[in-house]
Nucleic acid binder design. Sequence first.
RNA 1: GGGUAGGUUGAGCAGGUGGUGAGCUCCGCUGACUGUAGAUCAGCCGUCUUCGACUGUGGGGGUUCGAUUCCCUCCCUGCCCA
Length: 377
Amino acid sequence: MRAAPVTFRATAAGVGRARLGRLDTPHGSIDTPQFMPVGTQATVKSLTPSDLWTAGTQIILANTYHLSLRPGHERIAALGGLHRFMAWDGPILTDSGGFQVFSLAHLTRVDDDGVSFSSHLDGSPQRLTPEWAMEIQAALGSDIAMAFDQLVDPTLPPAEVAAAMSRTHRWAERCLAARSRPEQALFGIIQGGVDPALRREGAVAIAALPFDGIAIGGLSVGESKAQMAATLEVVAEALGDDPRVRYLMGVGSPLDFFDAVERGIDLFDCVLPTRVARNGQVWTSQGKLNMRNARFQDDAGPVDPECGCETCRNHSRAYIAHLFRAEELLAYRLSSVHNVTYTLDLMGKIRGALADGSFASLREVVAAHFSSPVGIR
RNA sequence: GGGUAGGUUGAGCAGGUGGUGAGCUCCGCUGACUGUAGAUCAGCCGUCUUCGACUGUGGGGGUUCGAUUCCCUCCCUGCCCA
């Protein structure tokens, strides 16, 4: 297909550093702020591309490490690329495998050149380098590739956080040098833990490189909400009026979106909506609900009376509660359909609120239901 | 009616041949989950005044300092025979 470059245009929305924008890719346009459902293994767990489309999905995320291990990026390339392979014709962003260096840390050994993995599938030795991550992502054919970074626990000694950040910067340059598909965008990732000075240094370093977008990584890994907010402030100040799209990786929960959008974030991804859905938790206009709770077994109402998703239009809480108890597969799909719809609807409401000046009141409404401990009433 | 194997906390079990049976798996209840090794994990799951204590091995009785264990009797369940 004709390879249109990935471009981003945004305008200030008048709320803090928030902005409204549009990201164009070879497979479609994305309204920002926007949320990307996570489909690590070329599937947003339990959902079909049709489900995703109906839920309002504009872009999904897939994973380099997982897909290179299984089924293999060469195989996917031979089968026509990731879009055709998974029958999702919309935009796809691929994560580089950097997160797996963190989440599978006990199976990895990091050195300056790259990371040695012991495959989580069969224990076989694997080697991931910036160049290899770029080659895999080129083979997958995603619209947006991510630089291979090193994410570490921000509570580690400062020297270790700084070392991982420096390595991330060197790897960032290697990723840029290893680009092979001009139509595939490449985003750099800012690291630096939660130390303001280090984060600022990370932001300046990544912003200085010719990436198509700027991602903020290493957050929502256990730090406090205040630390995350402060870190986003530091990054926002360091980036100034940099026009590139800003992507906060691995976030988040409904309230996280508000905190980040007002600090200039345009893109989000998170496993939370789909993961918690599979574990019985649904997000609603009334807050979080655990559909496994006994009280829902006799509740004939929809999961969320204010939601128009397939699940809420057709099924009762009692039915969903039954499906979870019976361990029926439909429980996971119906809950995921709802949570993805809820999350994307929320992003849509946030965009609408930015446009009409009701951001603060929308946040209040959501906070009223999500700030208190879960599952109360 | 005779024989035989059993009766343990919602279910299913383990254990225990005179001196700490609250141990397991389900079920059930609640919570957690943030660039997915996650349809997962954790806590609780007899009672209470819960860092502990008490009660509990089908019912009743007996022997004993002490009984789930030994004796008597009754009840219930499976199977075999009549």
